[in-house]
């Protein structure tokens, strides 16, 4: 293994509000970089995926991102940006 610097993935949480219902980027990413988690788990109640803020999209496996930008392209909310860190030549 040699050091590679991975792209920086930014999620604009104000735009991506219902990721579990949308799930487009989660299913588009070739290496499954993203994860989606419920923000609350309530006894006897299923979390409503359409209610904004009930789920949160997170970058879990950033080291596996190639900056292929497939996620950026599918996102209808323009909530994602993927860029190489400053100073790293593409």
């Amino acid at each position: 293994m040699y050091p590679i610097v991975a792209p920086i993935i930014k999620i604009d949480q104000a735009r991506c509000t219902t990721p579990f219902a949308c799930k487009l980027c989660l299913q588009a990413c070739p290496t499954a970089v993203f994860g989606v988690f419920e923000t609350k788990m309530i006894r006897l109640e299923e979390t409503d995926k359409h209610e904004p803020g009930n789920y949160r999209l997170r970058v879990i496996y950033r080291d596996r991102c190639s900056a292929c930008n497939r996620c950026v392209d599918v996102c209808p909310e323009h909530a994602l940006t993927v860029e190489m860190p400053a100073g790293v030549r593409a």
């Binding site: 799930k23 006897l44 109640e45 299923e46 409503d48 995926k49």
Partner: peptide, 15 residues
């Protein structure tokens, strides 16, 4: 895409 399914909520007094 995945079909939508009714969200379940069970009676709060279930023990």
């Amino acid at each position: 895409m995945t079909p939508t399914r009714a969200r379940v909520a069970f009676p709060k007094d279930w023990t």
